[in-house]
């Protein structure tokens, strides 16, 4: 509407348009368009650089690091895998024994996943589908557990395990991890079960299956992707956990999880930093690989519900 009044003398042959004036809108569009890439670059460097540094240091001999602390690229001719050998070898062979610690962590994490899923799948199904007394309250209780400080629960559990002489055993640790992960696992699985149309299950019921038959033959196969994601989530929590491992296992070196091992050894002066870096790479790689394999599933499992506002 304002156009005719602005161009008061339109020429017949349309001349090349004069450069548009710098409005606030145009300026902002241009600025944010550039800023966006700057921000993306900044975040990429900030998140990936520490991991690049980790890998780079793990491949360098310690003397090289001390001589040239500011180098971003390792001296390719001096690259060494010996750090990995040293960190993985058993203690008797002058190594740090990470291989057996990795074994402990794997046992703890796999046991936690199996039991947590065995407990959480039926629970999640019940919460999502079956009308039973106290169904709503269950969700609140689980939310509270999920939020509640681990450090408060840690003391009585520490006392209890000391009384039962279970301190230093991996079983006690698995029990704690299960209790910590079951609430989230139920939440993630429940969200998925709710997306399965009820009519599919009703068809099964009509065809003569009972409830357990419906769960086993219809719901479980359909929910497989979500079960995978939940299992991996539990695995990552159990693998990464530190506080309870520290409280329960610190006196028993043969039972250490690999996280606890790295934390305990990183205080010692005798072990070269590059060897410990190799240890960091060794504990990080399985998690990052698992995560990249299931990134989409995991983020959807966690954030479903968030988009409802």
């Amino acid at each position: 509407m304002t156009a005719p009044s602005r161009t008061d003398a339109p020429r017949r042959p349309p001349a090349p348009r004069p450069p548009r004036p710098w409005t606030r809108d145009r300026f902002e569009r241009r600025a944010f368009g550039i800023l966006r890439w700057v921000v993306i670059g900044f975040f990429l460097i900030a998140t990936l650089f520490p991991f690049y540094y980790m890998i780079m240091l793990s491949l360098r001999p310690i003397e090289d690091l001390l001589l040239r602390p500011n180098s971003l690229l390792p001296d390719l001719s001096a690259l060494t895998w010996s750090t990995y050998g040293e960190v993985l070898r058993p203690v008797e062979d002058a190594g740090q024994g990470f291989l057996s610690l990795l074994g402990n962590s794997a046992i703890v994490a796999v046991a936690s996943v199996l039991v947590a899923l065995a407990v959480a799948i039926p629970g999640a199904y019940a919460v999502s589908r079956l009308e039973f007394f106290g169904r709503r309250q269950v969700g609140t209780v689980f939310l509270l557990v999920y939020l509640f400080p681990a450090i408060v629960v840690a003391i009585p559990l520490f006392v209890l395990l000391s009384k039962l002489q279970l301190r230093g055993s991996l079983a006690g640790l698995v029990l704690v991890y299960i209790a910590q992960t079951v609430p989230v696992a139920i939440y993630m699985l429940k969200n998925y079960f709710e997306t399965i149309p009820e009519s599919v299950e009703e068809a099964g019921l009509v065809d003569g299956l009972n409830r357990l038959g419906v769960i086993r033959r219809i719901s479980l196969p359909l929910a497989m992707p979500s079960i995978m994601a939940t299992g991996i989530f539990v695995f990552m929590i159990a693998w990464n956990e530190f506080l309870f491992a520290l409280l329960f296992l610190v006196e028993r070196r043969d039972q250490w999880t690999v996280s606890l091992g790295l934390a305990q050894l990183s205080g010692s002066v005798e072990i070269p930093t590059t060897v410990l870096m190799a240890g960091s790479v060794v504990i990080t790689v399985p998690i990052v690989v698992l995560f990249f394999m299931t990134e989409r599933l995991l983020s959807e499992g966690l954030t479903s519900g968030a988009d409802k506002g």
């Binding site: 520490p50 991991f51 540094y53 980790m54 693998w239 990464n240 530190f242 996280s259 606890l260 790295l262 934390a263 990183s266 410990l276 870096m277 960091s280 790479v281 504990i283 990080t284 998690i287």
Partner: peptide, 8 residues
């Protein structure tokens, strides 16, 4: 893992 990132 928190132990690895704090170490780095």
């Amino acid at each position: 893992p928190v132990v690895a990132v704090t170490f780095v």
